[in-house]
Structures are given as structure tokens and as C-alpha cells.
Write a protein that binds this DNA or RNA. Structure first.
Lengths: 186, 186
DNA sequence: ACCTGAACACCGTTCAAGT
DNA sequence: ACCTGAACACCGTTCAAGT
């Protein structure tokens, strides 16, 4: 008789990880409490014990996971801002399935804290109007990633075209980022 | 006996209009084929006669409605670009309920045509790399509106703060737009 | 051609019950 | 404390039937 698998206890972390995997691989519309339960080898109802507000809480947690981005304070406010933008873009690109949530849910919890911290970091580094700057940085990252992911869902690209597309997206992003930072300096 | 209301025939247009109203006022998650049928005084199943692919087709149509934006060719490519950005922002702000779809669905149908037309307009007006420029403009508008709408769903603002918020959002948008156009010129 | 009614598979969530 | 099973109201979609 095969040994019974030791029952890894359910946890908020495992639930979110599994939910991200489903959303990214099959789409947000296929992320279902019952399917999520299956992936975790558990009845759907068990999830409510760890996320009391149910699916709404799950959606909030997924948005927060890709949106509560923090970076270390760097030598200049420009370096700190760049690090945040690159880190944010990376995690958003990694989880296209929850991009709609990330761009749309009002920031709260860890995301709101991260925004507050970022304003503080830029202020401490000598940037006036840091709150305005943070809004601009967030808008830039959100817009770039939205257009990039949208376009990756477009018609039949050839494989080498794909590669070029990625490279161009990176170059576009870096070019836009430099221009934005120059604009904020004034 | 009250006169029976003349049965206004169902149509794609009426369906989309009613769907936008539900999504904007109650949220996308409450937009349901059955609720949509109720709003149109019709059984939900009648909708399938006008949107054969059902809810998926409805979602596509809603995204297209706020995303297939076209403007007249203006005197300079800068003016044409500005007009498109302002028009796009306006229609996206008017329909926050479908913003997630607009930012996330790959462009097709009327949206893809509008993008093609815009590239042509800017090219004709003498802008090199018009396709890159159009991507940048779309990213700018999407990001700006996303951050703006996100923030409008935030904590308890006082009424006068609200007004200032709207004004500031307008000013931010115009300032960012000018900076972006200067950047594209080079 | 256009709409309805009944039916089916699936969904989110509750609640009492098990261990 | 943590999970299950049954139940309920609701959902998208089909299909045959009405007019």
C-alpha cells in the first residue's frame, strides 16, 4: 500500500501561490474556488477558513501580491525610483493573469504601505512633490505593462519576431523611464 | 387597461448600452446575462440571438466600445496625438466599470483598425516611428487613467479634496502629455 | 426571425457535522 | 482548529418549442 502523503497543512501562502498559478496559466475567469480546492487537494470550503471573506479576499490578496512592491533606498532618488519601476514591471509581467486586478483595485493593505514608504524614500532623498512623482511612476509602469501584455496576446507572431518584441519592450521601457525621470527633476 | 409598451426590438447597441450601465454603476462582477436580460425586459437567452458568442462576445464588445477611439487628422501630428489621448482618457473615465477589460483585452476588431488608422495619421503628418509613438501614447493614457480611477476608489476623501483631486488629475495628465510629446519629437 | 422555458453543469457561500 | 458534505441561490449556455 502506498504511503499516504503527509497532509501539508493549508495556508494563506499556499492558497495564493496556487491561485496565481491557475490565473496565469488558465486565466482569471477559470480561477474558481472549487478548482483552487482541487489544486490544493482539499475541498473548496476549506479555503474559507484561511480567507474568511472568501473569493473577494482572494482577489485582494492576489492584487496585493503583485502590487505591494518595495525596494531598498539607493544613492539617489533616481536610482530608487528606477529600482522600483523595474521591480514592479517584472512582477506584473510574471503574473499576467492578475494584471486586471492589479491595475484596477484601489491600493490598500501592503500596497498602500508600500506607496507610503516610497513617497517617504523619495522625499528623504531630496525630491520635492514626491507624492506626485510616485503617481507618475506607477502610471508609467502600469501603462507600459498593460500595452506590452495586451500586444503579446495579439495575432500570430513568428518566433523570431517574438524575441525582437521582448527586446523592443525592454528598450521602450528603459527609454521611457529615463525620459520620465528627467521630466520629474524639473 | 394600461397600453402595452411597444416592444422596442433588442439590438446589439441596446444590449451594449445596458451592459455598460450595469458595469459602471454596480461593477463588472455584477454584470450577469440574467441581470442584463432583466434590464432589457427580456429573457437572458434572447441576448444570444444578437451576440452569438454570449458573454465572451459581450465582454469583447464592451472593451471595444471604450477602446476603438478615432479622431480627425489635425494640423500637426502633435495636435492629432493630443486629441486622441484626450478623447481616449475621457471615454475610459466615463466607464470605469469596464476599465479592466479595456486595459487587458488584446486589441482586435474596431480597436485594431483604430490603432492602424492612428499610425497612418501620424506617419502622414511626418512622424517617423509612428508605431512606437502610438504604443507610448496608449501606455500613457492607460496608466494615467488606471492610477486616477484606482485612487478615486480610495479612502474617505472630503468633498473639497475631491474637487482638487479632479483638477490635479487633469493638470497631471496635460503636463505628462506635453512631456511625452516633447520626448517623441526627438 | 426573434424570443421563451425548461434543463444542465457549474459557481460562491452557509452551516451543521465530523475529527 | 481544521476540514468535509449537503444544501441553497445563482450563474452561463443548450436546445426544443413557441409566435
Amino acid at each position: 500500500m502506498p504511503a499516504k502523503r503527509p497532509p501539508v497543512p493549508l495556508s494563506r501562502e499556499r492558497i495564493i501561490e496556487a491561485a496565481l498559478h491557475i490565473a496565469d496559466s488558465q486565466g482569471l475567469r477559470r480561477l474558481t474556488m472549487r478548482r483552487l480546492g482541487d489544486a490544493l487537494q482539499v475541498e473548496a470550503m476549506a479555503i474559507y477558513h484561511h480567507l474568511p471573506r472568501g473569493k473577494e479576499a482572494l482577489m485582494d490578496a492576489l492584487a496585493e501580491h503583485v502590487t505591494a512592491v518595495r525596494v531598498e533606498q539607493a544613492a539617489t532618488w533616481q536610482e530608487t525610483a528606477k529600482a522600483w519601476c523595474r521591480a514592479s514591471r517584472e512582477v506584473l509581467r510574471e503574473h499576467p493573469g492578475v494584471l486586471a486586478l492589479a491595475l484596477t483595485k484601489p491600493p490598500k493593505g501592503g500596497t498602500a504601505l508600500a506607496i507610503g514608504e516610497q513617497v517617504e524614500q523619495l522625499t528623504d532623498a531630496g525630491l520635492p512633490d514626491a507624492a506626485d512623482a510616485v503617481r507618475s511612476l506607477r502610471a508609467f509602469v502600469f501603462g507600459s505593462v498593460a500595452v506590452e501584455v495586451q500586444q503579446s496576446g495579439w495575432a500570430d507572431p513568428e518566433v523570431d519576431e517574438w524575441t525582437r518584441r521582448d527586446e523592443r519592450a525592454d528598450a521602450d521601457f528603459e527609454r521611457g523611464l529615463e525620459a520620465l525621470l528627467r521630466g520629474l527633476q524639473i
